[in-house]
């Protein structure tokens, strides 16, 4: 039985890297007594994968983890046990049993919803008009380093929507293996548009949700528990 859990990363957990969070979840599952399915082969490990790594320093309320557990496990009991076994700063919110042919979380990711809290020196009004100016461009060409060379990339199609609300930049942008826009690119453009040096601005980045290729939340697949 494949399950998908939605979880968050708060407070000090934002300093814990992706692999350490994965190892932590393996421990949480064991503490919760959830019967995991192990991979075959040389060194069996629990079958578990994240939708998309979150950058160090970023918080989130919309992370997803797919795991295989033994058939017949009661989803309600599993969720209860996981909530009990985890810590306050790594909250487990929801669990869904995945339909048999569901795409795994990693392959399913197409977009991400972010909230970027803007610093004092980027007042909402100025940010608003700067954002409008950026979004009105037909193309936004940025240099991008690949493994071997530097290419030019149009990031405009990767911005699905963006708006300033309550001193924050809310944006839905492309994420995943097909096209991926880092969450600090648009805030960077915004600062430049407002005439601020890159060193003069810092922001707090928070992921609100991950979306599939159709724009639906990754957490909307399957039955709610």
């Amino acid at each position: 039985m494949n399950i998908r859990i939605r979880f968050g990363k708060e407070g000090m957990m934002r300093y814990i890297g992706h692999l350490d969070v994965l190892r932590t979840f393996q421990k949480i599952f064991r503490r919760a007594g959830v019967p995991m399915i192990y991979s075959n082969g040389y060194s069996p490990h629990p079958v578990m994968s994240f939708a998309l790594p979150l950058g160090l320093g970023q918080t989130s309320e919309g992370e997803y983890l797919d795991a295989a557990v033994e058939d017949g496990a009661d989803p309600k009991a599993v969720l209860r046990a996981l909530k009990k076994a985890t810590s306050q700063e790594l909250p487990v919110y929801a669990l869904r049993v995945l339909p048999e042919k569901a795409e795994n979380a990693m392959a399913a990711v197409g977009g991400a919803v972010w909230k970027v809290i803007l610093p004092q020196n980027m007042p909402a009004e100025g940010a608003n008009s700067a954002l409008k100016a950026i979004l009105s461009r037909e193309t936004i060409i940025l240099p991008k380093k690949t493994k071997t060379r530097e290419i030019e990339l149009d990031i405009r199609p990767m911005i699905v929507s963006a708006a300033i609300e309550d001193g924050s930049l809310l944006m839905t942008i492309a994420a995943g293996s097909r096209a991926n826009l880092a969450p600090d690119v648009l805030p960077g453009l915004l600062a430049a548009q407002m005439g601020l040096e890159p060193d003069a601005v810092s922001w707090q980045i928070r992921r609100l949700d991950l979306l599939d290729h159709n724009g639906s939340s990754l957490g909307s697949v399957g039955e709610e528990t």
């Binding site: 407070g11 000090m12 957990m13 300093y15 814990i16 890297g17 350490d20 160090l56 320093g57 810590s87 700063e89």
Partner: peptide, 13 residues
């Protein structure tokens, strides 16, 4: 914390 290697060393929790 974002400037040092392995910030998890210093945050406890």
């Amino acid at each position: 914390l974002m400037r040092v290697e392995k910030p998890a060393r210093y945050v406890g929790g």
